[in-house]
Amino acid sequence: MIEVVKPGFYSTIQDLGRIAYHDYGVPYSGAMDEQSAKIANALLGNNENNAVLEITMTGPTLKFIKTTAICITGADLSPKLNGNAVSLNKRYTIKPDDILSFGKLNYGFRAYLGVCGGFQTEKVMGSRSMYKNVTEQFITQKGELLPIKDLNTNAATSNASIKIDKTHFNTKSLPVYKGPEFDNLSKTQQKQLLNKTFTVSKDNNRMAYQLEDAIENNLKPIITSLVQPGTVQLPPSGKLIVLMSDGQTAGGYPRVLQLSDSARYSLAQKKTGDTFTFNMSE
């Protein structure tokens, strides 16, 4: 078990999501930055779909009840083990009563804590990913005990680590593809969309990122159609909305762009005020 002494700003258990239920209106959920979550599991020798703790902006304080191995990836939130700084993207053996805490946000926005064997919280519809009205809880709570497995012997003796390319966190260019309604835009609108620098607004969360900067929009709403994480919608205001992991499964705004998976993971590491452009390869 791991005791949640302080839950942090927004900490949730996530795996790779509910893949088979989108047709029934259930969002995929899953780790916002899937790349970082997979790295944590790989360094621990876990299955890539093992559940991790997704930590947003401000980290929790956690007390370990049993021996395990951990790895922290993604954003740098100045993690400390028993008050001593620990490195990202490196496996550590943890003993009972060890305390993991976090401090200043240095880069990125979401960190991932992996444990040996993955977190063993309730599985609903084939996934442990927390989501309101699907799982019993949608964020971790103070005093909660998070179940984990006993430490695997091989994990205890490994000191695996990896060096990460910071481009994933600081890139200003997000690869995109044409959305279904892209060609309904005028040439002027298309140029605006692909040449403008956009700013992440304060309205950003696991459901969607709204962007500050509006573009000209005279498109009519569409018949409610399928959308997915990474879909870029153009509402009447002209302020783009990028759907993220907990985004709805259908919508009536024109779908003008679709982020690549890598672009969506990079966007998940951006916070209010960060800027970027869309980059469409010919």
Rank of each mutant, 00 (worst) to 15 (best):
M1V: 00
I2K: 03
V4G: 01
V5M: 05
I13T: 01
I13P: 00
Q14Y: 00
Q14G: 01
D15I: 01
L16I: 06
I19K: 11
A20C: 00
Y24R: 10
G25Q: 05
V26I: 15
G30Y: 01
G30I: 03
M32E: 04
M32P: 04
S36T: 03
G45V: 05
N47Y: 02
A51T: 06
I55M: 07
M57F: 13
M57K: 10
G59T: 05
T67A: 08
T68C: 08
I70F: 03
L77N: 02
G83L: 06
N84Y: 01
A85Q: 12
P96R: 00
L100F: 06
K104L: 09
N106P: 03
R110L: 06
R110N: 06
L113S: 07
V115E: 02
G118S: 05
K123N: 07
M130E: 02
Q137G: 00
P147E: 00
K149D: 05
N152C: 14
T153H: 10
S158N: 14
S158F: 07
N159W: 01
K163N: 15
K166T: 15
T171K: 09
S173M: 15
E181Y: 09
K187V: 13
K191W: 10
K196C: 14
T199R: 13
D203N: 15
N204Y: 13
Q210R: 15
D213W: 07
E216Q: 15
L219W: 10
T224R: 12
L226A: 14
V227Y: 04
P229F: 05
Q233D: 11
Q233K: 12
Q233S: 14
L234A: 06
L243M: 14
S245F: 05
L257F: 13
L257K: 12
L259W: 07
D261R: 15
S266Y: 06
L267M: 06
A268Y: 04
A268S: 11
K270D: 03
D274C: 10
T275D: 07
S281W: 05
S281H: 12
E282P: 12
